[in-house]
Design a protein around this nucleic acid. Structure first.
Length: 232
DNA sequence: CACCAGGCAAGTA
DNA sequence: TACTTGCATGGT
């Protein structure tokens, strides 16, 4: 891993802490790129456990493909993804995604996945219901591009450890990783998965609990109490 | 009972 | 540009 800059060095140690503690994460938990894309929308502000139920329903309905989803009626679609919450909203978002594949790539998912990274990102961001994190999740986990995915955990963890400002935006956080690490999809894949894993177990009140794998990163004295600037 | 989860868009100031 | 609100289910 690239550790030729101070920031790269810190990230290197962070990755080592997490990787050593949690081991391989095997993300994204899906059988196909399309399943990743569907899951990326379904998991918006939603526990993955609920998303799994929705995906199981879609699979049972034969709707876990572009054509299968296109053929599924509105009522059945909403019913299938109901466990994932926001089912009316997410039904539309999934339809918007299908429409994007259809209109921009003639319904050819392989063509979508072969599109140049920057243009595919712009296209995805043009779809109503696909924002920065969802677009980047699709780019990394469905298309295998070296795009770092930032989420709420990323900011929370970096802020607590004094590595970013409380108001740091998405692109700023993303550049923290992409500017100081090799552009390796496998690395970005694992790194983001590990951040989610530690984020899930993060003690809200005391980030420096004795069992936190990041208790020594970057140095114990640099850890802030509180959550994302509030009560900091 | 309250709070949270692998966000996003639309509305307001 | 920077907040605020609606969207909804299921687990702790």
């Amino acid at each position: 891993m690239d550790c030729t800059t101070p920031a790269g060095e810190r990230l290197n140690r962070m990755f080592a802490c997490l990787s050593g503690h949690f081991g391989p994460q095997h993300w994204w938990p899906a059988d196909s790129p399309w399943e990743v894309m569907v899951g990326a929308i379904l998991t918006q502000n939603t526990n993955w456990q609920n998303v799994e139920k929705a995906i199981a329903n879609l699979r049972a309905a034969g709707a876990l493909s572009v054509a299968g989803l296109r053929a599924l009626g509105d009522t059945d679609l909403a019913a299938a993804i109901r466990p994932a919450g926001y089912y009316n909203l997410k039904s539309k978002r999934l339809r918007n995604l299908v429409a994007f594949v259809d209109t921009a790539y003639g319904g050819d998912l392989e063509a979508v996945l072969a599109e140049e990274t920057a243009r595919l990102r712009e296209g995805l961001l043009g779809v109503k219901g696909i924002g920065l994190e969802t677009a980047d999740s699709i780019l990394l986990y469905a298309a295998g591009r070296p795009v770092f995915v930032v989420d709420a955990y990323t900011h929370r963890i970096l802020y607590r450890h004094g590595q970013c400002d409380a108001t740091a935006g998405y692109e700023e956080l993303q550049q923290l990783f992409t500017d100081h690490l090799p552009l390796d999809p496998a690395l970005f894949n694992e790194f983001h998965a590990l951040l989610v894993q530690v984020g899930k177990q993060l003690c809200r009140r005391r980030p420096l609990c004795a069992r936190c794998p990041l208790r020594d990163w970057p140095e114990a004295g640099g850890v802030r109490q509180g959550v994302e600037g509030v009560e900091a």
